[in-house]
Amino acid sequence: MDKSTIATVHPDMPARRYPGPQGKRPRKALSGRNIMLYGALGLAALYYLLPLYVMVVTSLKGMPEIRVGNIFSPPLEITFEPWVKAWAQACTGLNCDGLSRGFWNSVKIMVPSVIVSIAIASVNGYALANWRFKGADLFFTILIVGAFIPYQVMIYPIVIVLRELGLYGTLTGLIVVHSIFGMPILTLLFRNYFVSLPEELFKAARIDGAGFWQIYFRIMLPMALPIFVVAMILQVTGIWNDFLFGVVFTRPENYPMTVQLNNIVNSVQGVKEYNVNMAATLLTGAVPLFVYFVSGRLFVRGIAAGAVKG
């Protein structure tokens, strides 16, 4: 073939390609870069998973096996007795019905707190974003400043306020406290979300005659599902993991799970039951973990798609 025709296509021949790469780009699975990358990631993961591993294996061992002292070895004989004991029999103070009491206390604290705080904060955020009332910016600034004041500073005044209200030591009091402390960050979250929605949707709803609550419930709420999930995750984990407010604002019979866990683990009488302690700790941490795994995928969804030019 003539050299000058090398790039031309003959009708009776398959299209001739230029020399060089064709098809998929070749990739080396074990390139130096990949080994470094996955090696580093693997090491970091191992480092963080090791304590969890120790906790799990310890919680499945009997006390004689633990006394041998080999904390990394898997259990020779798997037993679920520590878990049962942690849940139903471990003693704190006078009660010997295990963590289950704290679990249900925590549920009783968390569920209303999450609902109340999110309900109020979402309306706050909606009002701040769409109904620019006089002094809205000032109100918002004050609210945000609240997020930066250390909790410890406010504990004593709140104790006094709750006492005067007759709520000190009650579950209601703790729920009020949790709702108040969740307010700055949740309001910020909701406000920013509602600000990001197209303003014209709000205007259109007003032209259509919808009022404050109708726009909130029929237009904004259905579009705010992703941010509600985010707020719920934040509040569930935050309130479940709370120790300080739980120990300060409730009485022993209402102690949340975290406080009870502390009391089990830190009890000074008798033998330290490491396996029970580990099981109790894992049980306490299970709820936030569960919430993360279940709702993580709901996180970001293009709910607002179609409202504006796509």
């Binding site: 259109a204 007003r206 919808a210």
Partner: peptide
């Protein structure tokens, strides 16, 4: 706005994304 006897069409359409066309039309 609703008492002024006006209807408005926006640049970004501003349709309620969670509602069908029919519901969008009938919302007001």
């Amino acid at each position: 706005p609703k008492d002024r006897g006006i209807g408005m069409v926006f640049q970004s359409y501003a349709l309620y994304p969670q509602m069908t066309v029919e519901k969008n039309l009938s919302f007001g």
